[in-house]
Amino acid sequence: MARTAATVAIVIISLLHQGVSLDIVLKDLVVPEQAKRFTNVTLECIYESRMKPIFVKWLHNDLEFLKFQPKDPVDPINLFTDDSSLVVNANETTGNKVVLTEVDLSASGNYTCEVMGESPNFHEDKMTKVMTVVEIPDEKPTIEGDVRDHFAVGDTVNLTCTTPPSFPGATLSWFINEHEAPHDFLHKYAPEKSKDGLIVSRLSLNFKLAPSHFIGGELRLKCVASILTLYTKTSEHSQQASSKPEEPPIKEVRNLPEEGSLITIGNSGCFSVWASFLHIVVMHTVLIISAHLLH
Rank of each mutant, 00 (worst) to 15 (best):
M1P: 14
A2C: 12
R3H: 11
R3M: 09
A5D: 14
V8L: 15
A9I: 06
I12V: 15
S14I: 05
L15S: 09
H17W: 04
G19C: 08
S21E: 03
K27S: 14
K27D: 12
V31C: 04
P32S: 07
A35D: 14
R37T: 14
F38C: 13
Y47M: 02
I54K: 08
I54H: 03
F55E: 11
F55W: 11
L63R: 12
F68L: 04
F68Y: 05
P70I: 03
D75R: 14
D83E: 15
D83Y: 07
L86T: 02
A90S: 10
N91G: 00
E92K: 15
T93L: 02
G95P: 05
D104T: 09
S108Y: 11
G109P: 02
T128Y: 02
K129M: 12
V130P: 00
V133H: 02
I136C: 06
P137V: 12
D138H: 05
K140R: 08
E144L: 13
G145E: 15
D146M: 06
R148G: 01
H150C: 10
A152W: 01
G154L: 07
D155I: 09
V157E: 08
P164C: 03
F167R: 07
P168G: 06
G169K: 10
L172V: 10
E178A: 11
E180N: 01
E180T: 05
A181R: 04
A181H: 09
P182F: 00
H183Y: 12
D184Q: 14
D184C: 00
H187M: 11
H187Y: 15
K188I: 09
Y189G: 12
S194W: 00
S204E: 05
L209Y: 04
I215K: 06
I215W: 00
E218H: 06
L219V: 10
A225H: 10
S226N: 08
T232L: 09
T232G: 02
K233R: 13
T234R: 05
T234N: 01
P245I: 01
P248T: 01
K251V: 03
L256E: 06
L256I: 12
E258C: 00
E259D: 07
G260C: 15
G260F: 09
L262G: 07
I265K: 06
N267Q: 12
S276V: 08
V281C: 13
V282C: 06
H284V: 11
I289C: 11
